[in-house]
Amino acid sequence: MNVILITVLMLGLLGAVAAVILYFVAQKFKVFEDPRIDEVQEVLPAANCGGCGFAGCRAFAEACVKADTLDGLFCPVGGNEVMAQVAAAIGQEAVVADPKIAVVRCNGSCENRPHTNMYNGASSCAVAAALYGGETACSYGCLGLGDCEVACEFDALHMNPITGLPEIDEEKCTSCGACVKACPKLIIELRKKGPKSRRIFVSCVNKDKGAVAKKACDVACIGCGKCEKVCEFNAITIENNLAYIDPVKCRLCRKCVEVCPTGAIHELNFPPRKEKETIAPVNQEKAE
């Protein structure tokens, strides 16, 4: 009985002494922090993905609190909703930004873009890109080794084993931009998500001359300029044998999709066309 009493007393005493010491140490080393930083951090998604351009959610929260205006500060993962909460927490006006999403600008699947050699090095796009042009005759397109898949922290991007290309899960993509940074070939772009997620883009980044590009890949942009001519809104520019559709100017009329001879222009999430002549452009090309 005595032993137990002594033990309890000793431990209790030790605990009390430690608590007192801790209290004073904590007082001494106290750092003042704007309580709003914690508030802002609270509403952030806590993904620490770095999509905002800061080292993590905490750093972003600090930046928000310090900044005079929220212009230029945007959490792509949380979107406008979270930014509105952030703005409320620090008593500033929210700056509404267009929601974005990652798009893969390469359609060079194993079928469309035949292999001309076999890569046998480390399974990393960065290593392969530093070594050579890639397994196909197109030295611009997807290398298919999945650096973007590894970079994605939201499980929103997966390599399709059949096509050998990455596919983006629209539900999960937060447009943090990690895949864009990871891709050594710069084929992934963050584009305006568009109304009802509808968007049109050129799914090719090949800058070779038309004939060379076409030989390397069935669905390459050959820089023919048909889309540029048909576009009524001046949204399409052709540079270095490659068309680019400006997402801001594009009005989603889909005319360019119809005229593209190689089917390099993709439309997403549109309802099926009603008229007969506008079947999928790839089939059109084959029928001719």
Binding site: A122, S124, V127, L131
Partner: peptide
Amino acid sequence: RPLLDYIRLGKA
């Protein structure tokens, strides 16, 4: 292990 592959990447 692909040691040199990654070292080369790192060097770049």
